[in-house]
């Protein structure tokens, strides 16, 4: 879907981000040092770069300063101080996320930026169902399908985190917000409706004792 650079000197973390981004369908490029990262960004055309601040060779801030094109940047770092966040944002970064981070949060932020910068990513085509997250519009075989707000939110969460399972709790959080007091079963009822309405019976798989996953291969 998008071509994303992962700059992170910790190999395991780099690999972890890579695995998750690959799972949701992004193409990735991994770098481990500052100099390597700068070279990669200036020589390629990435849709987004995830920059670690503490990298050997050159730190993430310096890399950002020297980028010659307008690649969107998210700083990923263990540094939590406010000044560092401000430095990051004042350098023109699109977002800032601190370690340890929740992978789903990172995915959501990536999606956010991609939605802003790449118009085409707002439209997902799964089976014969077309979902436009920008206009919040769903079509099956070219015909509009009416979804309630909650149903659409659920579907959107599944689409953004496609190929990753989402727990029922997580789905409630994403679709209803933290303060929703409803039963986990509510999720099941809504999922049943989405499956029927959008013709995604097979694609939205039930993960045993956990939640749901939208399975989708390009």
């Amino acid at each position: 879907m998008a071509y994303i650079l992962i700059a992170e000197d910790e190999e395991v973390i780099n690999e972890l981000i890579a695995k998750n981004l690959t799972a949701v369908g992004h193409k990735i490029y991994q770098t481990f040092t500052g100099t390597e990262t700068l070279k990669a960004i200036n020589e390629n055309r990435f849709d987004l770069a995830l920059l670690d601040v503490m990298m050997p060779g050159m730190n993430g801030f310096d890399v950002k300063r020297r980028i010659e094109n307008d690649t969107p940047v998210i700083f990923v770092t263990a540094k939590q101080s406010l000044t560092d966040q401000l430095t990051g944002l004042s350098l023109g970064a699109d977002d800032y996320i601190t370690k340890p981070f929740d992978m789903l949060v990172l995915l959501a932020r990536i999606e956010n930026i991609l939605r802003r910068t790449m118009k085409n990513t707002t439209i997902y085509r799964i089976n014969n169902c077309v979902i436009d997250t920008e206009s919040r519009n769903v079509k099956v075989n070219g015909e509009d399908v009416h979804l309630t707000t909650q149903e659409f939110n659920l579907l959107e969460a599944l689409v953004i985190n496609r190929n990753l399972a989402l727990s029922r709790e997580k789905l409630i959080e994403l679709a209803w917000g933290f303060d929703f007091m409803g039963d986990n079963r509510t999720v099941d009822v809504h999922i049943q409706k989405i499956r029927k309405k959008c013709n995604l019976e097979k694609e939205i798989a039930t993960v045993y004792k956990y939640g749901y996953r939208l399975e989708y291969k390009k």
């Binding site: 695995k19 985190n161 990753l164 993960v207 996953r213």
Partner: peptide
């Protein structure tokens, strides 16, 4: 661990 839980 989360990846194990969620990814196929």
């Amino acid at each position: 661990v989360h990846y194990l839980q969620t990814a196929k």
